[in-house]
Design a protein around this nucleic acid. Structure first.
Lengths: 337, 337
DNA sequence: TACGTTTCCGAAAACCTTTAAGTCCAGGAG
DNA sequence: CTCCTGGACTTAAAGGTTTTCGGAAACGTA
């Protein structure tokens, strides 16, 4: 460990000026002769002076720090959002204070207080699912932005993926590929994501005047469920030519089971997944056409919006961010692959 | 946004005492009459007073904040370590300042300076691989602990998974199951993880006086490589009865290709993976026996060690943390599953 | 009464920086 | 010569808290 850290008064006395002059020189302000500024800068470099952000924050009232509150950071979805936010902040001089409430409301309140006591300039709350969640607290002295999981309170600012639009886009792609007997396997219906994606499916089907093949099958978001659902579906609706799956895990399971049952993908049945979780979507055979929610961008956008809210005006409400369809082999026209 | 935040002097005047007395009452110190303490506490509650951590840190010289510097947070390995560290810190009153250098040394130095200027009490550096990395900086005024990726400088404190020991444990398990023709498929040899795991394999084999079946096959850490290696291996060494894979991705690829070639797992060939990446290890059929590096615990331990280093003495050097073998169906004795 | 002890509380310094206000001086205008 | 202007620099206050030390009151003892 190095010896005591240099303060601005050390710099000032080494340069032979007052503290105020040193401060002005270091901050590039007027009223300092060029020669004097040089001396101060040289002194600062020699002492490897780093201004104390605490003292600075105490005066300015701005810490240039934001809190990032996650409910379940182990989840696959929180992480990219977090990364995107960190990215946007890191570009400036902002720092991110990370807290994980692990789904516990008490702990969340505790963290909010701790962050407030550290005088963060703003808060980003990233949810573990797209289900609306309780507002973190009314009347906080700093702006709050919700990412991935929106706030229940429409007066708050939330950024969520446009699941309905993305699902419709995915299904339109299947229709454009000439598929007409489209089935749907997805996750538990208490997930808004599952309901939204189904809504998107219905939307695209009704636009085209096509009926859904069989009932929507709901189960866990797992590969195992994808396999199981595949067996049920191929029994009940043997003539399907496409499946829209609510997640890549489900899709990977479906593909595997379908192949074992002698159905070729994509020749007999085209498959679309969701999430673009690359370890699954690019490693299955064939690689999966899937929806990429672009979560890093969502996180970045949320962070940029927090900036705006910090020094100015926010635009409340739920902002739906467009997703992207990544087209791979699992939806190629028959005979191509 | 709420109105101006209450300060301790607001609390003091509401309670009708001096600032000093208010401070003592709030911090549970002696020399305050019980009744007075009550009044102060009540006033603080009424104003929902939160002490300003900046002012407090300015005096005490302790911010109760640590910096978490990651080189590649998108990686699967950094995240659990980060979570474990956050966990250990969150238990106390510590907060974590997260920075992602994205593998760029310049950016890393920039972040170190920013963190130092914020007066963090310590630093955790989490690597993206177990390859030793340059020390973040000499003579920092705060303690530094490296997690997952150790520092090149043996005077630093590093915590890494015991890959050699874990690999040996995995291979001993195969031997205990009666397997004698054991092959090895792993990742690129410029990864220390790949070299260490191979070393563990050799160790366990030579203990038992058993020769490795064929050469070690090195390739990318991917499922695709696992499939490809399986084809080569089953051609070159058709009589193998077990494979130790350097990662679950490789193992999943191997299992898939082996089954397509008509080899039953585990009856004909037992398979062990590495990482316990659950989306792969529990969803393959059969579920994979694999090594769990227990990265969250590693992160927690690193954090706890940082505590120790902050207020006392550190024990320099590379600390190897034991891993755990998770036994599943892919190594069951023939005839069981 | 004088004095010592205990108990409770307040004044003020300290932490480090920024900034508003003030000082000093040279030089130009009248 | 006086007055004014502007540049270059310094002084001092402010920001919120903790902590040391001194003071005051209350009480007991001689």
């Amino acid at each position: 460990m190095a010896s005591k850290r240099a303060t601005i008064s050390d710099v000032a006395s080494l340069a032979g000026v007052s503290i105020a002059t040193a401060s002005k020189a270091l901050n590039g302000r007027q009223d300092v002769r060029a020669a004097t500024r040089e001396r101060v800068l040289a002194a600062a470099a020699e002492l490897s002076f780093q201004p104390n952000a605490l003292a600075r924050g105490l005066i300015s009232g701005q810490t240039r720090t934001v809190g990032l509150l996650t409910s379940d950071s182990v989840g696959r979805f929180g992480i990219p959002v977090l990364l995107g936010a960190e990215d946007a902040f890191g570009a400036g001089e902002m720092a991110v204070l990370l807290c994980d409430a692990r789904g516990d409301a008490i702990r969340e309140q505790h963290h909010v207080r701790a962050l407030l006591s550290r005088r963060v300039d703003g808060l980003i709350v990233v949810g573990e699912s797209t289900n609306p969640r309780p507002s973190v607290s009314k009347d906080l002295p700093v702006p709050v932005v919700y990412a991935y999981g929106p706030s229940e309170d429409p007066a708050d600012v939330s950024f969520v993926p446009d699941d309905v639009g993305a699902a419709a886009m995915a299904v339109r792609h299947l229709l454009a590929m000439g598929r007409r007997r489209i089935a749907h396997i997805t996750g538990p219906s208490h997930y808004k994501a599952a309901r939204d994606r189904e809504e998107g499916l219905r939307l695209a089907l009704s636009e085209a005047g096509v009926a859904q093949a069989g009932q929507t099958l709901s189960g866990p978001w797992s590969q195992r469920w994808g396999r199981h659902a595949a067996e049920m579906l191929l029994m009940a609706e043997p003539e399907i030519d496409a499946v829209f799956c609510g997640s890549d895990q489900v899709a990977a399971g479906f593909v595997e089971a379908a192949r074992e049952r002698g159905r070729r993908v994509p020749d007999d049945i085209a498959v679309v997944g969701y999430d673009n979780w690359e370890v699954l979507s690019t490693e299955t055979r064939p690689a999966l056409t899937t929806v990429d929610m672009n979560l890093e961008r969502l996180g970045r956008t949320a962070a940029q919006h927090l900036f705006a809210a910090i020094d100015g005006k926010a635009t409340p409400g739920v902002h739906r961010m467009p997703c992207q369809l990544v087209i791979r082999d699992s939806t190629s026209p028959p005979g191509i692959s």
